[in-house]
């Protein structure tokens, strides 16, 4: 464990909590892509199957359970409790265009052709594109509430810190997980455009982020 990965995990947890509390307290999921949240719940489900087969550490187990619970709780808020405020019109990204290539690639490019390994690989590839429906929804509506942009900021920060974690681990331990790194770089690139808008608009105190 290193400071980059620990702070990355904390940012990830903060992002998930920000989103959950935003929906819970505003009793609305307007502007939130339910599809992205479904994809994230799928990412955690397919990645954390080893929760029952491999014990890494208390921290690892606790964080996996927390991420799973919060992901499904958020999905249930969007699709059940506050479903009247779910803007399915704007949340129109065709997720099958993500799931099919990701599933296909996880069968082609993996470390070993075993169910657990293929599901893990699927979750790695899927995580790199899971935010796209949310980013697409923001471009479609042309705006995002500032709390939603803070959610995306912490999510992007978590990914950026993971890149630093991999540099550190390669330098310190010679650790290099090619699938995770390549997929993580692609995922972080998707946040670059958002980061630009975030730093130039939201942090300028304009509150809402409106796209040009």
């Amino acid at each position: 464990m290193n400071i980059f990965r620990l702070s990355g995990d904390v940012c990830h947890l903060v992002a998930i909590i920000i989103l959950f509390l935003k929906i819970w307290r505003s009793k609305s999921c307007a502007g939130i892509s339910g599809k992205s949240q479904l994809l994230f719940a799928l990412v955690f489900t397919t990645r954390y199957l080893d929760l029952f087969t491999a014990f890494i550490s208390i921290y690892n187990t606790v964080m996996k359970v927390v991420f799973l619970v919060l992901a499904y709780a958020t999905v249930s808020l969007i699709y059940f409790r506050f479903r009247k405020s779910y803007d399915s019109e704007s949340d129109s990204f065709r997720v099958e265009f993500l799931l099919v290539p990701v599933a296909g690639l996880s069968f082609l490019e993996n470390y070993s052709f075993t169910p657990l390994e293929i599901l893990w690989t699927f979750s790695i590839y899927l995580e790199s594109v899971a935010i796209l429906p949310q980013l697409f929804m923001i471009t479609k509506t042309g705006e995002a509430e500032s709390i939603t942009t803070h959610y995306l900021f912490f999510l992007g920060l978590y990914r950026t810190l993971y890149l630093a974690n991999w540099v550190w681990r390669y330098h310190e331990e010679g650790f290099f997980d090619q699938i995770a790194v390549v997929s993580g770089v692609v995922q972080t690139i998707f946040y670059c455009d958002f980061f630009y808008l975030y730093f130039t608009r939201v942090l300028r105190g304009s509150g809402k982020m409106t796209l040009p």
Binding site: A54, N60, F175
Partner: peptide, 10 residues
């Protein structure tokens, strides 16, 4: 080979 590594990252 990476798959021998425990998947210790979240």
């Amino acid at each position: 080979d990476p798959d021998a590594l425990p998947k210790d990252e979240l």
